[in-house]
């Protein structure tokens, strides 16, 4: 809960724990260029997911202002921006994780395969099985590696017997590139793995329920460079079968892994374009300021 509140734009919470420097009030004024709708190409044909007129409020405070964007099939879309810009909040809109925060309210139209995910008859439990999520800090459950991966399938009743489950666990771990390292230690606690392994375990856990979309919220920010490289490679493999939306602080990471990049600023979506274009020839002044390191 706190983690979420901290990423609010202009929030005054003083207990911020994030390492990166916050944009100061002065810089904000300096770069407070008018944001008038999203520039670039936010929309694609036949999108996997899409949002229209998305506003998010935490109690009285608005965190996201009128975001309109599509996420294409089997693409990796990166969301970047200074901290507190609302990118994580927006990501959590896509699998209704924000529903778990009582004071949080989301409006607008959000679809998955054209289906309204905020419709009355839509079920958040089912939605979250279809739109998986990997979190900033590796959060394996205090269970064995096997049970961690088997958690989702067991919940949802995806397998009918033990050997099917065994196969599914092995397949998921293999896809996450972890099976070789842990195949002899499946009954050991997941919390005993290294940070990078834990994060891949969390990816395997998400894959095990066979989602259509995987949301990744700064999945490598708690990891060392080598573990980060492995995860990035993994993402590249995963995009063959899944649609991935990743929030990242590292512009290099966005440039390396994504096809499209969305730049958020103070709760508004400023620019969406092909990654190459964003990093070489951004359309919006704010995007340029950010990627050239003048703030953020």
């Amino acid at each position: 809960m706190n983690e979420i509140l901290e990423t609010l734009p202009g929030t005054t919470t003083q207990s911020l724990q994030s390492d990166e420097p916050k944009p100061e009030a002065k810089t904000r004024d300096e770069f407070d260029v008018e944001i008038d709708g999203t520039v670039g190409q936010p929309f694609v044909d036949n999108p996997k997911m899409s949002s229209r007129n998305c506003d998010v409020f935490y109690a009285e405070k608005q965190a996201i202002f009128d975001v309109n964007v599509d996420i294409g099939r089997n693409e990796i879309i990166a969301m970047i921006g200074p901290s507190g810009c609302g990118k994580s909040t927006y990501l959590r809109v896509l699998n209704r994780m924000n529903d778990t925060i009582p004071i949080c309210r989301t409006t607008g139209t959000h679809t998955l395969d054209g289906e309204d995910i905020y419709a009355k008859d839509q079920d958040p439990v089912l939605l979250r099985a279809r739109v998986g999520m990997v979190f900033q800090k590796p959060n394996p459950f205090p269970k064995s590696i096997y049970d961690n991966v088997a958690y989702g399938p067991r919940l949802h009743g995806l397998t009918s017997n033990r050997s099917e489950l065994d196969d599914l666990v092995e397949a998921s771990l293999t896809k996450a590139g972890l099976f070789k390292e842990v195949k002899d230690d499946l009954q050991k606690p997941g919390t005993g793995l290294s940070g990078g392994q834990q994060q891949r375990l969390c990816i395997a856990r998400a894959i095990a329920v066979d989602p259509e979309v995987i949301l990744m919220d700064e999945p490598t920010s708690a990891l060392d460079p080598i573990a980060t490289a492995i995860i990035e490679e993994l993402m590249d493999d995963l995009k063959e079968s899944y649609t991935i939306a990743i929030v990242t602080h590292s512009m290099q990471q966005a440039a390396r892994v994504s096809q499209r990049t969305a730049y958020f600023h103070l709760g508004r979506l400023v620019e969406v374009n092909d990654t190459d274009k964003v990093f070489t020839n951004p359309e919006h002044q704010l995007t340029e300021n950010y990627i050239t390191g003048r703030f953020g």
Partner: peptide, 16 residues
């Protein structure tokens, strides 16, 4: 709809 989605949907009432 994917198979897994169907399976999940079928179990939902019981879980709720």
């Amino acid at each position: 709809m994917k198979d897994s989605t169907k399976i999940i949907k079928a179990g939902l009432n019981k879980r709720y």
